[in-house]
Structure formats: structure tokens, C-alpha cells
Design a protein around this nucleic acid. Structure first.
Length: 589
RNA sequence: GCGGCGGUCGUCUAGCCUGGACUAGGACGCCGGCCUGCCAAGCCGGAGGUCCCGGGUUCAAAUCCCGGCCGCCGCACCA
């Protein structure tokens, strides 16, 4: 029956058209002219996105529920959080525009290039002064440059009516999990490793977003922070064996520097063993990510992991792989980032909040260790220094053990410009009982751009069959799961029966349509276009024996089943990948 | 942000250069009727348009000019 299935050149254009016409997605605020970087999900797109999120949860949370929990944290955060995370510093770029041709440049990059030295940390004013003094002009047209301004990709607002209380819209979910780390860790009764997952909205004030759903100013992320003991590589990933033999397509940064452009397929366990992936956990979640994108319809050879070089990585990362998927319009786009974040984030939040965000692992038996300890003899200091003693003691209490030790080893230790009296610092060796080890957990982060993944699922579902569009979604992410159709339009008995079957399916939790408008072929076509996997047709035999036909969107074949069995059979068909032929008696056409 | 191209019923588009008979045409879709025992059949009827927004030129603007918004492509940007 099926003649040919073709893929058009401009899939994006076709999807935009279907998106608007059938209700998958469209630009937000259209009646006011639209705003770049914002898209609405329509009724069908919303359902599709919801099912993709549910699937992500199944892959990342449900199947690892002993170790991974999901939480929800606010979209807005106080300034401190994003100072600690480094976003206030790293998310702000000094920008300068050419007053003649209008091109925009990173002011710091321009100055560094011109004067050949680092200008890190200089203010916009200072950069502007250097540009004027050195007579730096537009590198393209030679025109004069304007004032240096800053551009921050963080959306900024105020929390409450107080002017000083700056709030930021989160640019990633991660900080919410790091800030909540201690609570979750305690609620899990001190277990490690464990993961915190979250699905939620984030905002980034992109300079000029394009590429529709692929680059948005506000979007949904599905993310997990997986906390591990850096000294326990193997124990950190108790499910590693599930994926150990999986092959992953990886393009290393090292290979790229050699001019290699195609990824290598490497077994996960070998990639970890050979150090291509720095940590088994990172590799494990990459493999799960691979399974996930496959499960939403992306073929294995249309995705790969691209290792970022040292200069391309974010400030917190020691190794990052972008998971890329090929789309028709823009080539390879990033659908997920897999990063080894080390202890950067928890370390920063410890420093900025003063909270102890370490984990504790007891030893099997407490051990006694000999340790050098610096004793501060307050009596001597007080007696000898009198009025200055308070200032000195405060300074000493702020110093780390190693700084104290260094100080104590000096001939004439000086603090706050004051010479310490003899005997003020004493190095002693003490025996201590240690029952375990404290450490800052390291973090492995798989982070998925939901909207991009939904778009990708749409691209890979798109088929043209005999001039009709079929969205061949994997059945379990199809927005509408079944359509119920009376065979002909004008028979009241068929229509009544069809409505009752429709309601029966709704009662059993299915998302279904009822459609009696137009010829049966037209209605099949209508359902195919939005990817409904199963069509239930009520014909004259139904009125006699309460059986109905079940049609498969992808083969157009039909089997006859009892109405009473429909929920069970649909469940198998949609969620368990059952073949249509195994569900009933074939109908000859 | 810059440059190029574009924006017309739900969707895709014709018209724009060469202003007026455009009351803005078509196709698909949608709705109603007839017909129809399984894959976008046919016939009849119908609804549906701020011609992206604002200003200007003109007796007259979808059409010409200016500004803005939005989209696509290239450049820049994308921790």
C-alpha cells in the first residue's frame, strides 16, 4: 500500500507549518508582533513535551530510584547564589560597538588582542580608557568604537520592594540542587552516591536568539546533579554494569586537534579504562542519555558525544561532552551537556555561605591518627600583648591550619604587624580518633534541553507517505494515543457506538480523539498527521459482536479485537512495543 | 547588533516592480448538506483577511518612501 517515504529538504519549514496549523508550537505573543526567543507549546506540543519529560524521568529517575530523587526549587534566586556560582562574574561580557558599521565585539577580547596582555577583571570604564588611549578601532572597518557597556545574560529583577535586593532568574537548574544539597543529603540519611534531578524552566537573556525552538530565551531543562565520593570511583556507579558493554560514539578533543571529524564508537567500559571519559559515572549517564535520545526516535548514527576543549568549557567543568543530534536545518545541535563539575559548585557555596556542605563516610573501624596540631597559647598572648591581644587572636582564628603551621615555623612570627611573644604558638603531636572521612562530593551532571529534544523528536518522526504527512513518533511519546472513528459519517448507530468506545478509552486513562467528520480515509490521514499510533474503527460488525478494528499508523494494517480488551491491548501496543499482529485477528482488506 | 531577503484568510500562496476596476484571487484545511461498508473520492453551500505595526507621499497605498517589530540566511554573540 505504501509507495514511498520521502524527507523534504526543508523539514524545519514543514514542521513550522504543521506546528502552527495542528497546534504543536508557534512564536509567543504573536498578536503583539512576537518577541524573539519565546515559543508557545500548543495542545499537541504540550502533550508531546509532557511525554518526553515523563520518559526522561523514567530513564534517569525511575530506573535509579534507589539513588536518584527529584526535587523542585524556585526559578528566582538571590544575588548571592549567583555570585557564588560564578554566573554574575562569568555571565557578564563587556561589549563595545563600532559607531560606523555597528559590529559588536567583546571589549576585553579586542583590547587583549591589541595590547597583547591579559585585561581580566578590568572594569568597562578601564577598558574604555585603554581603547581611547591606544587608539583601538574596529578591526573590520576601522571605524571609531563607542562606549564600553556590559551585557549580562542573566535576567535581573528585584525581590520584594527593596531596591538593594537583586534577584536573578536561574540560567540553569544546577544551583537549586547545590543549594539544597545538605537537606537532600540529610533526608537520604547521609547516603552517597546519590543524584538530585529536576525539571524546570530557566532563562538566559540571549543577545540575538534564532533557530526557533533550538535557541530560546526561556526554556525547560531536565537535569541531574549526581554526587559522588571522588575517592571511590567504582562504588560511585553501582549500576555501571547495565551499560558497560554499550558502544558510544565519541569525538575527543584530542582527535579533533588531529583533524579527525568523525566520532569513534567505543565501548563504555573501554572508554573509561582508557581515560577517554574521566569518570565511570560521567560515561554511565552518557550511555543513558544515548538510550534516551534513541527512545524518542533519534537513530544511533544521528547522535554523538563531542568533547569540549579546555577553552570551550564552562568555568566549573573539568570535562564536558556535548551530546549532539543532527537536524536538517542547522546541522549538529546540542541536545544535552554531560559535565564533570568536580567540587567547584559545592566548594564555592561552602565558601560563600559558610555552611558545611561536605559528606561524611564512616570507616569500618575508627582509626587513630597522629596529627600535628598548632596550639594557640592565649594566656601568653594576652599577658604579653595586652591591648593588642584581641586583634591578634582574631586574626589567628581566621587562619587555616596550614597557614598557622607555616607561621609557627618562622623565627619571628608576625601577625597584624605585631611580633608574637615566645611560646604563643606551639606545635604538638596529638593522637586523634577518626571515625570517618569528610569530603566535598564531586558532581557529574547530565543536562538536557527539553524543547530541543521535543523539536528533534518531531524531525525524526516526520514522514511523507503517498503525499501524506505521518508523524511517526515512538508510540509512547505520541501526544494523542488513539482515535475512535465510526466507519461512515451519517449512521447514528455507528456514531453512538463510537462515542461510547471513546469514553471507555478515556475512562481507562488514554488520551483519545473522537472524529466523525469526513470520509474514513480523510480521518485516518488527519490522525496520521499528528502521529496517533492507533485508530479504532467502529463498523457494522461492531454492532453485531462488540468487536472493532485496530489500525497501526505505521503499517496501515488492521486487526480485529474485542472492545472489552481494547485497554489492555492498547497498553501493550503503546507502552510495551507489542506488534499489531500479536494483538488480534488480521483484517483482510 | 550589522548586512541581505521576507511578512497577504487557520495554513501555503497570487497580487507589489509598472498605485486606481482588489468589494484582495487561488489551493489546502475547517464547518454544514448530499453521497460514502476502510485510507486526504465527488457534488452543493458556508464561515474565515488589522494585506505585521506606525508615520509619510498621493485625489487614491497590499503596492512607493521612512521608522519599528518579527522571521529566515550570513557575520558577530551563544558561561
Amino acid at each position: 500500500m505504501r509507495v514511498r517515504s520521502v524527507l523534504p529538504e526543508d523539514l524545519f519549514g514543514k514542521l513550522v507549518e504543521i506546528g502552527k496549523r495542528r497546534g504543536f508550537f508557534w512564536p509567543s505573543y504573536e498578536i503583539y508582533g512576537g518577541v524573539a526567543g519565546f515559543y508557545d507549546w500548543g495542545p499537541l506540543g504540550f502533550l508531546l513535551k509532557k511525554r518526553i519529560i515523563e520518559k526522561w524521568r523514567r530513564f534517569f529517575v525511575h530506573y535509579h530510584q534507589e539513588y536518584v530523587v527529584e526535587i523542585e526549587t524556585p526559578v528566582l534566586g538571590p544575588e548571592k547564589v549567583y555570585v557564588a556560582s560564578g554566573h554574575v562574574e562569568h555571565f557578564t561580557d563587556p561589549i563595545v560597538r563600532c559607531t560606523r558599521c555597528g559590529r559588536t565585539y567583546r571589549a576585553d577580547h579586542l583590547v587583549e588582542e591589541a595590547i597583547g596582555e591579559s585585561v581580566e577583571g578590568l572594569s568597562p570604564e578601564e577598558l574604555g580608557r585603554i581603547i581611547r588611549e591606544k587608539g583601538i578601532t574596529c578591526p573590520v572597518c576601522g571605524g571609531p568604537l563607542g562606549e564600553v557597556s556590559t551585557f549580562n545574560l542573566l535576567f535581573k529583577t528585584q525581590i520584594g520592594p527593596y531596591e538593594g535586593s537583586i534577584g536573578y532568574l536561574r540560567p540553569e537548574l544546577a544551583q537549586g540542587m547545590f543549594v539544597a544539597f545538605k537537606r537532600v543529603y540529610e533526608s537520604l540519611r547521609g547516603k552517597i552516591p546519590f543524584g538530585i534531578a529536576q525539571v524546570g524552566r530557566v532563562g538566559r537573556n540571549e543577545i540575538s536568539p534564532r533557530q526557533a525552538l533550538v535557541r530560546l530565551r526561556e526554556f525547560t531543562i531536565m537535569e541531574m546533579e549526581y554526587f559522588i565520593d571522588p575517592e571511590d570511583r567504582e562504588g560511585s556507579c553501582p549500576f555501571f554494569h547495565r551499560m558497560a558493554g554499550e558502544k558510544l560514539p565519541i569525538l575527543t578533543h584530542e582527535a579533533k586537534t588531529r583533524g579527525v571529524e568523525k566520532p569513534d564508537w567505543i565501548r563504555l567500559d573501554e572508554a573509561v579504562e582508557e581515560g577517554i571519559i574521566v569518570h565511570p559515572c560521567l560515561g554511565y549517564w552518557m550511555a543513558v542519555g544515548m538510550k534516551f535520545t534513541e527512545s524518542i526516535g533519534v537513530p544511533r548514527d544521528k547522535t554523538y558525544f563531542d568533547e569540549k576543549g579546555p577553552d570551550e568549557r564552562a568555568h566549573y567543568s573539568t570535562q564536558t561532552f556535548d551530546q549532539l543530534v543532527e537536524v536538517t536545518r542547522w546541522g549538529w545541535v546540542e541536545v544535552a551537556g554531560h559535565s564533570y563539575r568536580g567540587d567547584y559548585d559545592l566548594g564555592r557555596h561552602m565558601k560563600y555561605s559558610g555552611e558545611d556542605l561536605t559528606a561524611f563516610k564512616p570507616y569500618r573501624e575508627p582509626i587513630t591518627v597522629k596529627r600535628r596540631k598548632i596550639l594557640i597559647n592565649k594566656a601568653v598572648i594576652g599577658r604579653e600583648l595586652k591591648r593588642d591581644a584581641k586583634r591578634v587572636l582574631e586574626a589567628l582564628s581566621r587562619m587555616s591550619d596550614s597557614d598557622l603551621e607555616e607561621l609557627a615555623s618562622r623565627e619571628e612570627p608576625v601577625v597584624e604587624g605585631i611580633k608574637l611573644p615566645r611560646g604563643a604558638l606551639q606545635v604538638v603531636e596529638v593522637e586523634e580518633k577518626v571515625s570517618g572521612r569528610r569530603f566535598i562530593p564531586h558532581v557529574v551532571e547530565p543536562s538536557f534541553g527539553t524543547d530541543r529534544n521535543v523539536y528533534v523528536a518531531m524531525e525524526y518522526a516526520y514522514r511523507e507517505v503517498n503525499g501524506r504527512v505521518v508523524m511517526a513518533f515512538p508510540r509512547d511519546i505520541a501526544p494523542v494515543q488513539a482515535v475512535v472513528l465510526p466507519l461512515v459519517e451519517n449512521d447514528e448507530r455507528l456514531k453512538a457506538k463510537a462515542r461510547s468506545v471513546y469514553e471507555y478509552l478515556v475512562d481507562h486513562g488514554f488520551t483519545a480523539y473522537y472524529d466523525d467528520s469526513g470520509s474514513i480515509g480523510r480521518r485516518y490521514a488527519r490522525a496520521d498527521e499528528i502521529g496517533v499510533p492507533a485508530a479504532v474503527t467502529i463498523d457494522y460488525q461492531t454492532l453485531e459482536d462488540d468487536t472493532t478494528t485496530l489500525r497501526d499508523r505505521d503499517s496501515w494494517r488492521q486487526v480485529r479485537v474485542r472492545i472489552k480488551d481494547l485497554p489492555e491491548k492498547l497498553e501493550k501496543f503503546i507502552y510495551r512495543g507489542a506488534r499489531l499482529e500479536d494483538l488480534g485477528v488480521p483484517v483482510q482488506s
